[in-house]
Write a protein that binds this DNA or RNA. Structure first.
Lengths: 168, 168
DNA sequence: CTAAAATTTCAATATTTTCTGAAAGTTTAG
DNA sequence: CTAAACTTTCAGAAAATATTGAAATTTTAG
C-alpha cells in the first residue's frame, strides 16, 4: 500500500472507531489527521484535507483542545493558528480516559448516589432488589473510577504488567 | 424519592449512559428495565413500560440477547416469550467487555496490521513517523485486548485488586 | 485608530440513526 | 390441517445529530 493511501485509511479507521464509541466522526478524523501530520496544521489545512467547512473544522479543533489532545502552535510572522496533536499514544490514552472519567463516570456516580435515597421500607423485597442492583453498579463503577486514576498515574508497562500477572 | 420514581430515573440514566458510549438509547433502557424487574417481561410489557413500538421492542430485545445480557424464559401454559436479564453486575461488565472486544477491538487490530504494510523506503522520515504512530496504537490496543481477556477470566476483587496495588 | 485577516457563532440544512406499524412469517393448540 | 397467537421484518417517517456558510466578532499589523 502507498503511504498516502495508508494515511487516508487510517483517518477513516479512526473516524469509524470514534463513532462506535460515542465520539463525533469528524472530530476523530481531525484527530487522526493531526496524529499523522509531521507539521502542525491550520484550520484551512484541515478544511482542505478532510473536505469540511470552516465552522466544522473550527468546532472540532476546539473540542479536541478541550480534550487536551491537541494544542495551538503560534508561528512567528504568521497570523494563523496552527494545531498539533499529542503524539505519545500512552499519553493520548491517559488523556482520553481522564476526560471520559470527568465527563461521564463521575456524574454517573453522583446520579447513582441519589438513587439509593429511597423512602421505602428496606424489607420490601422490590426495594431491596432495586437497591442491590444500584449498589452493585455503584461498586463496579467506583472501582473503575479508581482504576482510571491508577492508569493516569501509572507507567504503561506497570499498568499492563499488573493486569497481565493475573493470567499467570 | 419514591421507588417507582427511582426506577424510572434509573432507566433514563442507563439510557443516557448507553448513548454516550455508542449504544442505542432504547436498547440501554430495555436493559435497565429488565435489570430492575423482579419478574421476566414480555415484549408487550416492554412496549407499555417504555412507550415504544413492537418492532423497536423486538429488535432491541433481540440485540440484547446477541450481547448475552438477556435471555428468553418460557413460562409453561403461556405462548408468549418472556425476557430476563443477567443481574450480576460483574458478570454484566465482563459480557459487555467481551462483546466490545469481539466487535471492535479485534477488527481494529486487524485493520492496523494492514496499515503497517507500506511500500515505501523505511528511511523516508514521513513513512517512519507514520509507522511509529500505527505501531504505537497497535501496541496499546493489543495490550488492552489482553487486559480484557484477563478481566473476563478474573474475579472482580482480583482484577481491581491488581490495579489498586499500583497506587500503594 | 483602521482595516484586513482570522476566528467564532448559529440558524438553516443535510445526514445519519432510530423508530413505527402494518404486513409477512412462524409457531402451536386444538 | 387451521386459525389464532405471537414474532419478525422492513420501507417509510420521525427524531437526533452533525454540517454548512455567511454574518458577527475578535485580533493584530501597520
Amino acid at each position: 500500500m502507498k503511504l498516502q493511501e495508508a494515511k487516508e485509511q487510517f483517518t477513516q479507521l479512526w473516524g469509524a472507531l470514534g463513532s462506535s464509541w460515542g465520539i463525533n466522526r469528524t472530530m476523530a478524523q481531525v484527530h487522526a489527521l493531526l496524529l499523522i501530520s509531521p507539521e502542525s496544521l491550520s484550520t484551512e489545512d484541515v478544511m482542505v484535507k478532510l473536505s469540511v467547512s470552516r465552522g466544522n473544522a473550527n468546532m472540532n479543533l476546539r473540542e479536541l483542545m478541550n480534550w487536551n489532545l491537541v494544542y495551538k502552535e503560534i508561528k512567528t510572522g504568521d497570523r494563523k493558528e496552527y494545531f498539533k496533536a499529542e503524539k505519545d499514544i500512552w499519553e493520548v490514552t491517559k488523556r482520553i480516559a481522564k476526560e471520559r472519567k470527568r465527563r461521564e463516570i463521575q456524574p454517573l456516580i453522583a446520579s447513582l448516589n441519589i438513587l439509593t435515597d429511597i423512602d421505602e421500607d428496606k424489607r420490601n423485597s422490590e426495594a431491596k432488589e432495586f437497591l442491590e442492583m444500584v449498589n452493585g453498579i455503584h461498586t463496579v463503577v467506583t472501582k473503575m473510577d479508581s482504576a482510571v486514576d491508577t492508569l493516569i498515574k501509572a507507567e504503561e508497562h506497570k499498568f499492563f504488567g499488573a493486569i497481565v500477572k493475573l493470567l499467570k
